[in-house]
């Protein structure tokens, strides 16, 4: 069946179901509530006092950058926490509700089902990210951050959400129960994040022990979105100087681009495996254009 992104039945239906209840509105309110609350606490604890004794333009910019960094990291953590909950149940919940077979015996391809599920979760994340824009725009009152910086950061958020979302969908096709899929997704993310940093530190040690002197980024860091975020913030605040995540990687300006590409490639692979996994006759390209 010919399917386009904008007329994917799974996407349309999911959006309709998600938006109909009060849960989505409550989710956005909670999400923004957490961000506003933490940002407010941060402001009155660290920023206000410093501005009280130094009201120069430079001090305002420093305050803006400081709030921006805090909000950027906070939003990043929230994305990592919320996305798996959105995607890890996408296929397993269909199994639990006994609707997966009904869907699979239609002319909608496995590709259409997985992409529809991923896009609906992503559109929800996008809604959360976009709804946080007014909060971020407060930073412009202080200065020190450009709209270009913000666009770069938000683009990276979307890529991170796609990568984490694809991990959730992948485990959702493997485990029958949503709870299991969600827990395993969180554990995998945590393990990958931690292992990539430990392994990177070890590889860097070996590199410098063997006389390496040029800037070097060990490959495990490319799969860690936290490293990408750290690089973006370093670029925007200090022009890329300083090591990524405190590791001695040297001066890096475009690492976040390679990091994003790596995450997108991994996301693509996981989506591909998910498509193959839910196809009941295990033929990826068996779908044909019938209508």
């Amino acid at each position: 069946m010919r399917m386009r992104f904008y007329n994917n039945p799974v996407l349309s239906s999911e959006l309709k179901i998600r938006m109909r209840g009060w849960k989505t509105a409550l989710g956005i309110i909670s999400y923004l509530g957490v961000m506003v609350f933490i940002a407010f606490l941060y402001y009155i604890t660290f920023i206000q006092s410093s501005l009280d004794w130094n009201r120069s333009v430079n001090a305002n910019q420093q305050a803006g950058i400081s709030i921006y960094t805090m909000l950027a990291v906070l939003q990043f953590i929230l994305i990592l926490l919320v996305t798996p909950a959105q995607t890890a149940g996408s296929i397993s919940s269909e199994r639990e509700k006994q609707t997966l077979d009904l869907l699979l015996c239609t002319q909608l391809s496995s590709f259409g089902i997985i992409i529809g599920k991923l896009l609906s979760s992503m559109s929800h994340m996008l809604l959360l990210i976009v709804s946080s824009l007014p909060l971020f725009s407060i930073i412009f009152l202080f200065g020190g951050v450009t709209p270009g910086d913000m666009i770069m950061l938000f683009s990276f958020y979307i890529i991170t959400a796609i990568a984490v979302g694809s991990i959730g969908i992948f485990f959702s096709t493997i485990f029958k129960r949503t709870v299991t899929a969600t827990v395993v997704t969180y554990l995998t993310m945590f393990a990958l994040g931690l292992i990539s940093i430990i392994l990177s530190a070890y590889l860097m040690n070996i590199y410098y022990l063997h006389g390496g002197s040029a800037s070097y980024v060990p490959f495990p860091l490319y799969i860690n979105p936290a490293a990408g975020l750290a690089n973006i913030l370093q670029n925007q605040i200090s022009g890329g100087s300083g090591g990524i995540l405190g590791l001695g990687t040297g001066y890096q300006t475009s690492f976040w681009i390679y990091n994003s590409i790596t995450m997108l490639v991994i996301a693509g692979l996981l989506v591909l495996i998910s498509i193959i996994r839910i196809n009941p006759v295990n033929r990826l390209f068996s779908w044909k254009k019938n209508s």
Binding site: M1, R2, N7, P9, V10, S12, S13, K16, I17, R20, G21, E94, K97, Q98, T99, L100, D101, L102, L103, T106, Q107, L108, N290, S291
Partner: peptide, 21 residues
């Protein structure tokens, strides 16, 4: 019989109709 929460009878049929193109 699998059901989707928050879906009306005509929307349920409409959804599966769209899955058949």
């Amino acid at each position: 019989f699998g059901v989707y929460d928050n879906l009306k009878v005509h929307e349920y049929l409409d959804f599966y109709g769209s899955c058949y193109g």
